[in-house]
Amino acid sequence: MKLTLHTAPEVPLEAEVIGPTSLNGLTEAEVSALTVHHGNRKEALGEFFTVTGKMNGRLELEGDLSFVKLLGKGMSGGQMIIDGNVSGHLGVGMSGGRIVVNGNAQDWVGEDMKGGSIIIKGNAGHMVGCVVRGAEVGMQGGEIIVHGNCKNEAGGGLRRGLIAIGGNSGDFTGLNMLAGSIFVLGEMGIRTGAGMKRGSIVSMKPAQMLPTFSYSCTYQPIFLRFYLNYLRELGLVIDDAWLTGSYQRWCGDSIELNKGEILLYHS
């Protein structure tokens, strides 16, 4: 099935009904009649999208969706391919399936995610895979792969899963992280890993460490080969030297359990 944006919303459009799981089994007419929230007004989905084709597990979206939020909310399977930019809260609470964005995504990608994968071919905003405000546990499974850059608080409160950023990340990467893995192939902003309990943050560039992190050693972590080869398979650019190279291991955050690690490529 394909949804093509024919009328750009003037204010944010909350379209949580759009996703391969929620549209499964519906006809074109039924999909067009679904309710979306255009600002504070309820509208029919067909007022914004042209719906064509049948659902067979794969949903395609086309157009500039920079004002369309909550796409793929709660999806548990299937594929959603988006040709264009999307707004925030992409794949909120998803537990399975795959979202590919051939463009940029705004804030809160994969918020409260439990499984599946989200691939952003462009850049992402703040709070990629981040815990919602007031909660303690963030993303609990799955993968978020951003080919470009992302902004602040990527992986905040991460409990389980993989977040990989092909470019740079903003400040507070891995804030209050509980476990899981974050890879940043470019540079990270300041205060990386602040408050982290466990888990791994890996970067290929030097980074400024908080004073509550302690340098352990420089060594060759074999397990990184699994991740780097996997990320290469997913299309990220991986330098061969990273596979066999040495990494500084920093332990922290000592204001918490001190069982987290930041691995920085050294040579």
């Binding site: 389980r160 993989l162 893995s181 466990r198 791994s200 060594y219 060759q220 972590p221 074999i222 397990f223 699994f226 991740y227 996997y230 069982k259 690690e261």
Partner: peptide, 24 residues
Amino acid sequence: GYQASKVLNGRKIWRIPVMEGEFL
């Protein structure tokens, strides 16, 4: 207590710290 697990693409691996580095 210093061991750590990693789960990637359905494969769960343990990293056990040893004097020379890590046993995977």
